[in-house]
């Protein structure tokens, strides 16, 4: 029997010349990339005008695998890089794709300010609850009692509730899914590609090598089962109630979807109001 050559529909979105990727077996980052590629197909986005910006870490490697204009920046600074990119060329769709440590520890200040300004960028945060690239240290997302290499007797710091922080800082759109929720995640990613302003999606993702194993939570498949059994979809849930714990439930869904002028709209409105005809809207800049 002759077998037809089967091409994975997401292959055209990937730099196949860079495969195999560096992610571990059971890691969820690849699953999120698959969802993102499917969202790109669904969205009809002009891929020549879509740039992806990552910071440093396991998720920071996403930019390098996507066949788009892609920028692998410095640790924590994907958002301010994306801010400059977007403001210099507002016709670009700019997506920031990075991890929890990158976006909320070293880059936390930038995230809250980009949300406050409502910069028109879309942030996908893959949250594996740990610093994975460096070997499993505590992150600001590590739940209390979880064991990490830098909290060998269990973590005793409270963790950030990412959706609550993003909403409080001013994000226009906030959702959370896990890598079990592939369809919902792809739909949210598609949503934000059509939404103006600062959008934030948290994706809980297993790190079997460094988080689940050390906390006796099994492998990647066990984590999928855990996500399946412990996730509760609550669209519109109050973000203050979304704290995560070591073995507790995970509230998922779309929590915030609101409208307000983005940074450029606010800037142009104000300057036009004050300067009238003297205001010159920036051209698509070219050096």
């Amino acid at each position: 029997m002759k077998e037809a050559a089967v091409i994975n529909p997401v292959e055209p979105f990937l730099r196949m010349d860079r495969m195999p990727h560096i992610w571990c077996p059971g890691c969820g980052i690849g699953t999120t990339v698959n969802c993102f590629a499917r969202a790109l197909i669904e969205s009809g986005a002009d891929l020549d005008r879509l740039a992806i910006v990552s910071g440093i870490g396991c998720t920071g490697r996403v930019a390098g695998y996507l066949k788009l204009d892609s920028f692998h920046t410095t640790h924590g600074r994907a958002i301010p890089f994306a801010t400059g990119l977007k403001l210099a060329n507002p016709s670009l769709q700019v997506v920031v794709y990075s991890g929890d440590g990158d976006l909320f520890a070293i880059g936390g200040n930038h995230l809250i300010h980009a949300a406050r300004r409502n910069i028109d960028i879309k942030v996908v945060c893959v949250n594996n609850l740990i610093y994975a690239m460096t070997g499993g240290q505590s992150a600001p997302t590590t739940p209390p009692e979880a064991v990490t290499t830098t909290a060998p007797f269990g973590c005793y710091e409270p963790a950030f509730n990412l959706p609550y922080l993003a909403e409080s800082a001013g994000a226009s759109y906030v959702a959370r899914w896990t890598t079990y929720h592939v369809r919902q995640l792809a739909r949210s990613m598609n949503d934000v590609l059509h939404k103006n302003g600062f959008c934030f999606i948290e994706v809980l993702s297993p790190c079997p090598t460094l988080y689940q194993r050390r906390n006796r939570m099994g492998d990647g498949l066990d984590t999928m089962k855990y996500y399946k059994e412990h996730s509760k979809t609550r669209h519109g849930a109050a973000t203050r109630d979304l704290e995560l714990s070591l073995h507790g439930d995970i509230i998922v869904g779309k929590f915030v979807d609101r409208e307000r002028p983005d940074y450029l709209e606010a800037m142009q409105h104000r300057l036009r109001e004050q300067l009238g005809e003297r205001f010159v809207e920036q051209e698509a800049v070219c050096a």
């Binding site: 924590g76 600074r77 301010p80 890089f81 801010t83 400059g84 210099a88 200040n109 300010h113």
Partner: peptide
């Protein structure tokens, strides 16, 4: 744009350059 700190300012300009600006 007035950024939140110098780390942000110094990389926002690099993003702008790759977006086509000086």
């Amino acid at each position: 744009i007035q950024m939140e700190d110098e780390l942000a300012a110094s990389i926002a300009i690099l993003g702008a350059v790759w977006g086509g600006a000086k």
